[in-house]
């Protein structure tokens, strides 16, 4: 062994380290790109707290949150040019990432504008997990809808884990009549929607998801493809903070 060999070895070792570092940088760059692509395309929608509400769990802050359900994501105002607006896809709006306060009485108001056909599974026609197990539709108290009277659902669930309280809410949303939808189809203006109001009580902090259980991915198997396979239209997150 001569010095030249060992110098060469050292040089190649440094080269190797630099190469490995470059490799790590390349892989990390892929990670950064994917992470950037994963960034929430939505602005978050925060519930506003106003007053308190006495419940069996004690007096809790009363939070309010309002969403709309639109027959076309172009109208939901949640999908601007950069947010992935997709003509013909229904969508919640103005946001699909909801932020709710912990240990609160949350009243959610959904104004809904879409038509409907039939649920894949009739269970999702029931109101589940709300206070009293009911909701109001334009002021009328209701605890279930027939499977063919639904346009979409708001179904909130999450991973059962020791670090957060369970939370399950299912609210079916009443469909607009065909006559009402004709106005939209003909003129492109939304009809007067149904106003659905329901309340539920949040536990401690946690991360949950919600999705629609009404099959709205037309033209795909079980109508659960297309819009149903993408985030930000008929599905999203719920952060209890």
């Amino acid at each position: 062994m001569t010095t030249t060999t060992s110098t060469r070895n050292n040089k190649s070792a440094i080269g190797g380290l630099i190469f490995v570092l470059l490799g790590v940088i390349v892989v990390s760059t892929v990670g950064v790109v994917l992470h950037t692509l994963s960034a929430d395309p939505q602005k978050k929608l925060y519930a506003t707290v106003s007053g308190t509400m006495s419940t069996p769990q004690g007096v809790l802050p009363h939070a309010f949150i309002e969403e709309g359900v639109y027959p076309d994501s172009v109208l939901s105002k949640s999908h601007g040019a950069n947010g992935g607006s997709h003509p013909g896809w229904p969508s919640y709006g103005p946001a699909t990432h909801l932020v709710l306060p912990a240990h609160s009485y949350v009243t959610m108001t959904l104004t809904v504008y879409d038509s409907g056909e039939k649920l894949n599974h009739a269970y999702f026609g029931k109101v589940v997990g709300t206070v009293d197990g009911t909701m109001t539709i334009d002021g009328t108290q209701v605890s279930a809808l027939p499977a063919d009277g639904v346009q979409h659902t708001f179904t909130l669930h999450g991973l059962p884990t020791s670090t957060q309280d369970p939370l399950f809410v299912n609210v079916p949303l009443p469909k607009m009549t065909d006559d009402q939808m004709k106005v939209y189809d003909d003129k492109g203006t939304l009809p007067v929607g149904h106003k659905v109001v329901f309340s539920f009580i949040t536990g401690g902090k946690g991360e949950y998801v919600w999705n629609c259980e009404y099959p709205c991915g037309d033209g795909t198997y079980a109508k659960f493809g297309a819009v149903m396979g993408q985030l930000g239209y008929m599905s999203g997150k719920v952060s209890v903070a």
Partner: peptide, 27 residues
């Protein structure tokens, strides 16, 4: 292998927000 690194990075802790479920399933 790079995709595998991404999968494992997302699973580094529960509730990870490294990538969305859509991207994770594709990974």
């Amino acid at each position: 292998g790079t995709l595998a690194m991404m999968i494992r990075t997302n699973l580094i802790s529960p509730g990870s927000k490294f990538v969305t479920p859509v991207i994770y399933n594709s990974l």
